[in-house]
């Protein structure tokens, strides 16, 4: 139930921010759209803790700050290798092990790996991630498991 309420609230905010008109006609059209979207989402059975991860809300901001820092560092690494040329890169593909229990934890981890440039999650089977990296060092960083630990701490 709280997931439905949260979804309708966020849809209402999204509509108001995007439209910027406050006439009665526009507001009623917005209300109708929200009801329609809620009905379709209920039929698709997607309103649950996976599409609305409310239990993560308090822990997410800290993780995002750390992730943004990682993304900036990884960007500079990749840009450096772009300008230094093909001789300096050492592409690697390796299977790494994830310690997350829930599906949403695995998805957050896989997406975080893909979002940092230089590493891409190619395949996901059980707790085995197939990861491609531009330089071998960045895959070794993943194996040491800093990001893995942070995502696991997030889901508990």
């Amino acid at each position: 139930m709280k997931h439905t309420i949260f979804l309708s609230l966020s849809l209402a905010v999204f509509w108001l921010l995007n439209s910027g008109h406050n006439t009665a006609l526009m507001l009623s059209l917005g209300a109708i759209s929200i009801v329609l979207v809620l009905y379709i989402a209920h039929r698709m059975d997607v309103i649950d803790h996976e599409s609305q991860p409310l239990h993560l809300t308090l822990k997410l901001p800290g993780f995002y700050v750390w992730l943004i820092k990682e993304i900036i560092l990884a960007n500079f690494l990749v840009v450096k290798h772009i300008w230094l040329g093909n001789k300096t890169i050492s592409p690697a593909m390796m299977t790494i092990k994830a310690s997350q229990k829930t599906d949403i934890g695995k998805v957050i981890y896989a997406n975080s790996i893909t979002m940092t440039p230089g590493t891409v999650t190619v395949n996901l089977k059980g707790d085995q991630f197939l990861v491609h990296a531009l330089v071998t060092e960045s895959i070794e960083d993943l194996v040491t498991g800093e990001m893995d630990r942070r995502v696991t701490r997030l889901e508990n």
């Binding site: 772009i82 093909n86 491609h132």
Partner: peptide
């Protein structure tokens, strides 16, 4: 344009899409 194969090119696109 410069990287040798598809997977490495994907990392170059990743730079333009995030930072």
């Amino acid at each position: 344009l410069r990287f040798p194969d598809f997977y490495t090119r994907m990392h170059a696109v990743g730079v333009t899409e995030t930072l």
